[in-house]
Design a protein around this nucleic acid. Sequence first.
DNA 1: AGCGGTCAAGTTGAT
DNA 2: ATCAACTTGACCGCT
Length: 311
Amino acid sequence: MSPSKVNKLRLGLCCMFAREPIKFRTTTATAMLRLGKRERLARVAELCLVNADALLAALGYCAAHGIGAFRVNSQILPIKTHPTAGYAVAELPGSSAIVARYRECGAFAREHGLRLSFHPDQFVVLNSPNPRTLKHSLAELDYQAEVAEWIGADTINIHGGGAYGDKPSALRALRANIERLPEQVRSRLTLENDDKVYTPEDLLPVCNGTGVPLVYDAHHHRCCPDGSTLEASTEAVRATWGRREPLFHISSPLEGWDGPKPQRHHDYIDAKDFPKAWIGWLLTVEVEAKAKELAVAKLQADLADSKTHAR
DNA sequence: AGCGGTCAAGTTGAT
DNA sequence: ATCAACTTGACCGCT
């Protein structure tokens, strides 16, 4: 295979660094609510600005080390949607400088061809029957879409949510709620197969029906299989992206595939776990491994190695 | 500086 | 019933 084919594939780093001294800060709602509103907003504004600087540093690291994508931490604006300690960006002292700093991150990413994504955490459940959970989920998506617009992130990736004992019904609820999303969220939204409820085959009809692409996680598919092979799912999933560059996830099991909890992530990626069917395509693969940038570097080297040493 | 308790939130499955 | 797992331990107040 030619080097140019391999080089179409870019690896992504998720949220944080293991060794490199680049840190994102956060706080707790409890601590902030001990303060008066004025002081609270000042403290939060400081963290938002510090995190913008950290993001710029993170992007600089990626650009310098051939890492083509970076996933942004959900707490980059700390406690943004908390019911009582949350805030609007415009309330923060120096808000225009904060936004300007994030837009600088966006400009840097664009100049260096870096792809940015968000992955709202487990509390964002678009098919929850609990109206408060749904409302909060929508608020969280709005917030992440706001920052995504500043920095030019093209994906906000979530899981299918709960099954609530009736998958077809839960999937209908998911689809209905996707269709009601505001454009700035929906245009970036993606769904990902998870490790215990929703497989690619479960989600593909929702994706094909709504135009929301599917983020294919090979590790989750191995933990929670359906009737489809990795190769067939790769093809079906790729089609949900249309002309956009697909985004996939890779990780390796902490204690092997036969260990007690194969869904737990290892520090590094075992090159044998990296699907050969993914090599040679224009594709982003986010590396979910605890050793973070060290794991990306190792996988870069292993993939380059498998290219030069004929199998 | 180091340490232990705490932290906003949902859902599932293992124990 | 409790708890760990999930993209990830980090923060805070105390000593």
